[in-house]
Design a protein around this nucleic acid. Structure first.
Lengths: 260, 260
DNA sequence: GCGCCCAAGGCTGCATGCAACTCAGTACTA
DNA sequence: TAGTACTGAGTTGCATGCAGCCTTGGGCGC
């Protein structure tokens, strides 16, 4: 579940009623339990989630800032829907921001051992790229997330962390979200992983050589790879269903099943 | 007060107790009433703001997401401080995102009349650039904000809006924040306005010609202008005081007044 | 004298009652 | 028939009481 661990913000302590409500509610929304635009009333959810209205409201506001809910002028919240254009923009924005992270990393080039960590992660990825079993894939996703997290760490910019959080918290915009289709063993899957791994290597090289502009360009192109994945997913409806929050996406009429 | 109107999010209706608490509390924080790292307790603020604990807490969470407060693991909130590096990064990130907005505008080039609106705003700015009185300056700031808002509108990207909101909501990162020093009539002020206006014109031209890369580069450089302003402000402590949220900034020792 | 433990105060997390607001449906009037 | 005003249900906004947590200070034991 990408993005679920993104905005923890741990404002009040964890394992509170707020956290309970937040996790459960986010799960319900991403599972498509509510239709986009549907209003979420407090009282029905109170008994459904087993928390009282106060923490539930705080969970609402958290989800609003996270982008999954939208506040109504007269009070109350509705589930937010996304268009295909939103998905594309979110992914491209992630590319822009990760590109900035890569550039910062190259320009500032502080942590020598931090860069080594990045290399270590990527070496581990290399061993998985050519494997086809499901477990390897799960490991790949895990390592891929760590790679991107480490890249961000190399940038040494809390402000950049914040900005990227706002994008990655969306269910489909994380660095691994679009890989879901690989699970379905679509034929295009293998090559994408190889290219992605090449991007990682090139990025590391550019950062090590302090080639900021190149590092930025590669990171952007790397995200566009996810965009390509998304196009594939959008054209395979049976795979799309596995994408978290798929029910929140308003498909273009052309991609929609005919009205029966 | 840049950024104060940024995240309205109008979640619950306006003119509520939450809004009252939010506006007043933000004002108090930006005015430097609380030191960075200082803990904000609910009860003292309840009597000070005249609202009860419930809306106050919601205001806390809003300010946390806005970036002015930080939640403690054990509960409670502290005022967040910023380093000079944070300021620089925030401004540079605004440049990156506004650059993306300009590129989107160039690539998508939808609204012909929207672009005309941008031109109209900039024509109005042109008449003010060479005036020196205070009223003109206020109008300039107003028009400058509108220019940047309109540029964002041209991008037609709600996701981009969101990302930029997260940056601009910071008190010193808005497109006009660094212009405060002009009020103090520092000698460098005039030329900056002229260059900024040139950037605006070049941006419009690039967008009209669908030159995405150029539009992006100009917008980035345009933000770096604010960065230069910031450097000037940071070296004039008497002007710095006028920057909203100045008391939240941890100055480098070199720029700090000697320990007396 | 130093360190640990205990207790008390203060603070936040949570639940719930009350009030005000919004919206929908209906009936009445022009 | 169309428009308006009213009423009612449902919902959210707000305040406050209570309970549990963390912190801090003092006292006691080693």
């Amino acid at each position: 579940m990408p993005g679920s661990a993104a905005i923890e913000l741990a404002s009040p302590a964890n394992r509170t009623q707020i956290t309970r409500a937040l996790l459960r509610l986010r799960e319900l929304i991403l599972s498509g339990e509510f239709a986009p635009g549907e209003r979420l009333s407090e009282l029905p959810l109170v008994e459904r989630l087993g928390v009282s209205r106060t923490p539930l409201r705080l969970a609402f506001t958290a989800l609003e800032h996270e982008g999954l809910l939208r506040g109504l002028p007269g009070g109350g919240y509705v589930v937010r829907g996304f268009t295909e254009a939103d998905l594309r923009d979110a992914i491209e924005l992630r590319g822009v921001l990760e590109g900035t992270a890569a550039r910062f990393a190259a320009q500032r080039g502080s942590g020598r051992d931090q860069l080594r960590t990045l290399r270590t992660i990527n070496d581990a990825i290399e061993e998985l790229v050519h494997q086809a079993d499901y477990e390897s894939f799960e490991n790949y996703v895990e390592l891929n997330e760590r790679f991107h997290a480490q890249l961000l760490a190399l940038a040494h910019s809390p402000m950049l962390d914040r900005a990227l959080d706002g994008i990655v918290s969306l269910p489909f915009a994380g660095p691994s979200a679009a890989f879901v289709f690989t699970e379905a063993e679509l034929p295009e899957s293998r090559d994408v992983l190889i290219v992605a791994h090449y991007h990682h290597r090139a990025m590391i090289e550019a950062i090590a050589r302090r080639e900021g502009a190149r590092a930025e360009a590669i990171a952007r192109e790397h995200a566009l790879l996810a965009l390509r994945n998304l196009e594939i997913v959008l054209s395979h409806r049976e795979v799309l269903e596995q994408l978290p929050g798929a029910r929140l996406i308003a498909l273009r009429p052309s991609a929609t099943e005919p009205l029966t």
